[in-house]
Write a protein that binds this DNA or RNA. Structure first.
Lengths: 182, 182
DNA sequence: TTCATTTCTTGCCATTTGGCAAGTGCTTTT
DNA sequence: AAAAGCACTTGCCAAATGGCAAGAAATGAA
């Protein structure tokens, strides 16, 4: 608990969230729709994906538990989403609507800061991933993900991990074979 | 002028900015330092770059005029930057410090919204670029950049554009040759 | 359990992209 | 103007990754 807020403030915030449950393969967000909910994922695992111009599915993000799940662009600019977010396992979370969240943002500066930090942190992680795509080999990207994010391999399908890593499932399979030898 | 703010508010905001000038190849931000200024680039062209773990320079962003220049992660979380931001041409801009900007954010909700939108928009652009790296060929990425961002080719060096596009300068050169034939 | 479906692996070969080094041309310095 | 430096191009070949299709393994349904 290193939030810069009092227990009372946290309670005030928590009151506005409502419990939401998802069963495996339910959608939290479907492309073409507006992302109206901001979800704290208490338990389970989700992934975001989109389709490229050739119709191929690309996984863009994985959400482990205790993280916030939403598509920043659609949520904050009130536009339709180009991404889908789907439950990979059964999930439990607590969600709040855009309107309510905005009221909280306006009235509780610490929470506003918290929201901004979430966004910046996610952005930063994205930058890091982009950099890896540019100058790390497929094998290095795999190694880094294994070392930094083991839980992904626990829940996600390999083909989804492959597109997240920017390689084909065939290549991922071969790379894993190499690694298992060592 | 589609800002959701009155002329008076805009004047209030503008008062807190101070003019800054950069001559070609000056640095706005150097890695290892904290990004303390938020800069509105009125004229000129800048680029952001970083070094990968093998010591290769990678251009991560281009800033045309009339855009905001800063490294979100370092600026908002008050940590040292891993990126450099350098003037590609002579530049003129208006900057404000983190402290002052925060005061404005706290006191002017519309400006706060504006700041959030800038961040979200940049994030969104980054996502798009990452997606291209994953499933577009080097040639398609080049074509898209030429069509959407001609001004980059007007100011930036080809080797910087190459690393931004996630390819070597050799490949970019070959791709450009192909294109010139058509 | 058995059958059907989906996921993952593997072999073979094609394509894309990179590495290096030499060469060309432009720009800056002296 | 000559020399030096930098940016860019190009030829040759190597390495990385992909495409496809068949098979193996795992999962889910009946």
């Amino acid at each position: 608990n290193n939030l810069p807020a009092s227990r009372q403030t946290l309670t005030d915030i928590a009151e506005h969230f409502e419990e939401k449950n998802f069963t495996k393969s339910d959608y939290f967000l479907i492309e073409g729709q507006e992302n109206n909910d901001y979800l704290f994922l208490a338990d389970g695992f989700m992934r975001a994906f989109t389709f490229d111009t050739d119709g191929n599915e690309v996984t863009t993000y994985f959400y482990p538990k205790n993280r916030v799940v939403f598509e920043a662009s659609s949520f904050f600019t009130r536009t339709i989403s180009t991404e889908n977010i789907q439950a990979v396992t059964d999930c439990k979370g607590y969600s709040i609507t855009f309107e309510k969240l905005n009221i909280l943002f306006h009235s509780i500066p610490e929470f506003r800061e918290f929201g901004r930090l979430m966004l910046v942190k996610e952005f930063s992680a994205y930058k890091h991933r982009t950099l890896e795509l540019i100058n790390k080999s497929a094998e290095e990207r795999y190694a880094n993900l294994v070392n930094s994010n083991k839980e992904i391999f626990q829940y996600a399908q390999l083909k989804h991990i492959a597109s997240y890593l920017g390689m084909t499932d065939t290549s991922l399979s071969r790379i894993r074979k190499e690694f298992s030898k060592k």
